[in-house]
Design a protein around this nucleic acid. Sequence first.
DNA 1: ACCCGCAGTGAGAACGATTGTCAAAACTCC
DNA 2: GGAGTTTTGACAATCGTTCTCACTGCGGGT
Lengths: 142, 142
Amino acid sequence: MTSTERETATEMRPTRQRTAVARALDSFTDFRSAQEIHALLGQRGEKVGLATVYRTLQRMAESGDVDALRTEDGEALWRRCSATHHHHLVCRSCGAAVEVEGPAVERWTRTIAEEHGFAEVSHTLEIFGSCRDCTSASAAGS
Amino acid sequence: MTSTERETATEMRPTRQRTAVARALDSFTDFRSAQEIHALLGQRGEKVGLATVYRTLQRMAESGDVDALRTEDGEALWRRCSATHHHHLVCRSCGAAVEVEGPAVERWTRTIAEEHGFAEVSHTLEIFGSCRDCTSASAAGS
DNA sequence: ACCCGCAGTGAGAACGATTGTCAAAACTCC
DNA sequence: GGAGTTTTGACAATCGTTCTCACTGCGGGT
Ligand SMILES: [Zn+2]
Ligand SMILES: [Zn+2]
Ligand SMILES: [Zn+2]
Ligand SMILES: [Zn+2]
């Protein structure tokens, strides 16, 4: 512990790498994997180590700057999101996402949990589907 | 195609291994990982390869005999569940699970998806928390 | 009972996303 | 400028899961 011992809250230095990741996140609206984001940075000539991309995304997720979700096969996807609690409607094939809110659902989960004596409750809720573009694209293919 | 060409639906042979996995699933009600189930079988003296456990669980999940969910760090957990669509209230530390249903939520997700032109919609919804037992156990520890 | 053919199995290799390591580089503050 | 941290990145290591492929064994005709 430092002698100062003050509120060491979350002193996050604004390094070149971190701002690069932040800018990358601002450049797209769909959900992408850490590796895809790392590749994107590479294409732009921004050299950032893969581990750093992972670390930065995690930090930003903790501070609520980005949302993370897991595909059905377990891969983590990331996206810059609004700070308020919400869920997503995500396209399975292109990753396009829409933020959705459902106060009723929030209430319902809390109630259910209480009824069963569960504490420290959290929840995950994602809606997956095929967005309009992808649906018509695949229809054309038949 | 066989000459008979009858409904070859999902001809799944009832092998020793498959019944062993099925029985193992019947012996607990919490969510467990494939590896844990494999270990459980080992303890019972039932020799079943890990790959077979994975394959069997997947098959059973497809046919709706078991439910799978992913922990927050991406690991798949399995549990024998009732056949009707439902969600879970799961304890983060011991895996204890309660099946819950929310017709309103089902309706809501479908509506939201339609509004945004998404097709082939599915959704995931799990509620995580600390069950009564685990909560009091950790409280005792302080 | 005997054969055949193919679904099923298992040991181990391979995979792929993520995390750990640790010395070098970059920052902050003095 | 220098001390003390934090951050970085190349690479190794993890770890859950899937793949490979030779081998096993059920099933169903004969
Ligand atoms: Zn799409
Ligand atoms: Zn919510
Ligand atoms: Zn518990
Ligand atoms: Zn549902």
